[in-house]
Design a protein around this nucleic acid. Sequence first.
RNA 1: GAGAUCAUAGCUCAGCUGGUUAGAGCGUCGGUUUGUGGCACCGAAGGUCGUGGGUUCGAGCCCCAUUGUUCUCCCCA
Length: 457
Amino acid sequence: MAKASLPQGTRDFDATTIKKRRYIMHTIEQVFEQYGFAPLETPAMENLQTLMGKYGDEGDKLIFKVLNNGLERPEKHAAARTDFEQILTGKNVASLTERALRYDLTIPFARYVAMNHGKLNFPFKRYQMQPVWRADRPQRGRYREFYQCDADVVGSNSLLNEVELTCIYATVFEKLGIPVEIRINNRKLLAALATACGGEQWFTPITVAIDKLDKIGIEKVCEELATKNMSAQQLALITKYLAIEGTAEEKMAALQNLLGQEALAVEALQELTYVIQSTQQLGITNVQIDPTLARGLNYYTGIIFEIKATTVQMGSIGGGGRYNDLTSMFGVPNTPGVGISFGVDRIYDVIEELSLFPQTIAQATQVLFFNTGETELPTIMQTAFALRTQGIRCEIYHETAKWDKQFKYAERNGIPLVAIMGSQEIENKTCVIKQLANGTQETVTLTQLPNYLVGLA
RNA sequence: GAGAUCAUAGCUCAGCUGGUUAGAGCGUCGGUUUGUGGCACCGAAGGUCGUGGGUUCGAGCCCCAUUGUUCUCCCCA
């Protein structure tokens, strides 16, 4: 017998955990629907071709691949052996692996839009809440299987979308009680910085390096860029850019001052100003401009978002941004979109750490009926059955046992009420209801019972 | 992919420079107590010391390998 175990980085979820996670997901789902997003689900597996090359070189390595079935068939052996050599050089070969587990929800969504663009009404707004898989090494706040909740709108260039998605972020985290900072930036600003440094070939090195600013500090960022042959003059510009601080208005002014001669920068600043001002007018105060925000996924082209919990040490718990033309990779051009994502499992960890889950979540059964004996059991079953039709969740203890045990069962399972019907009560058509929390108990007639219990709940 | 760390009862952990039969608390089960839980007391069950090798008269402890945990780098939700 092999010892029971789980694949690395995966977890089982017990009842309490699932209920807590549902609470998070329901909260998100409600807000999504308030803004007119409709649900979508896609398969756990995609064609490997759909996913490869969409997340950068690092991303490709983290995609879980599925080995093809049927490789043991003799007529495939020769081809499989040759193709395996390709695998060893880091290539992917369709004859050995042609499917992979989804890595995020955005690319499958783009694939869906490309496949169905003829019958969708644009702008098309969908939300999706499903697990994704990444072959990362697990650590704090990092899992190999985790849930994402995404909302995307495609077929619209309007900044109204960015504003509303920001509102969704603000509303969800307010409902969950998590203090967060909504950081926004604009990829066009980074593109302008690259141009000011001499050309767009600097875009990727710059974004990669400055994304690490808060971790490694400004000197190391400059060191890293210097190794890419960046001149002292260029580094001076980067340093000035990274040193920008202050209120949103002050940052805007400084950025305008530094990059105002670049057309892209002007555009970027206008967009950021619009989002900041609009959300401020709606009473949302936790949006921050962060010029150093870059984000790793390379398909973003405009405004980008990242959510940081301010009172807990944790990686970002949400992120997103605008992409010009994600569907063109699937042969359908001119479909701009913008989307956001919630990292449910990290949000869970944050709420747990801050002890913000409502007490009532864990409570399932409201009433435990004591099993007082074989002769009493039929009446007890009838009573419980009737209560259930009235929407009251009840259980009957599975066997006649000492009350001691039955009490402990109720306690351990967080059942707040115990119902006792012995021969005496049955004869009088009554029932004793005891509240475990404070020990008080009352005798209630069976006709009053449903109302009595609703009153306690 | 690189590095560090840990792995002993269901859980949390002790276990000395390598030396008899590996301990505690909590939990579980039984009892004091068959119509009222939480408390107390008494008793019991429960361990291939992650796995596989090696060194040694002797290994939970030392060495090597391996698997998993937690964490850091990388990157991300």
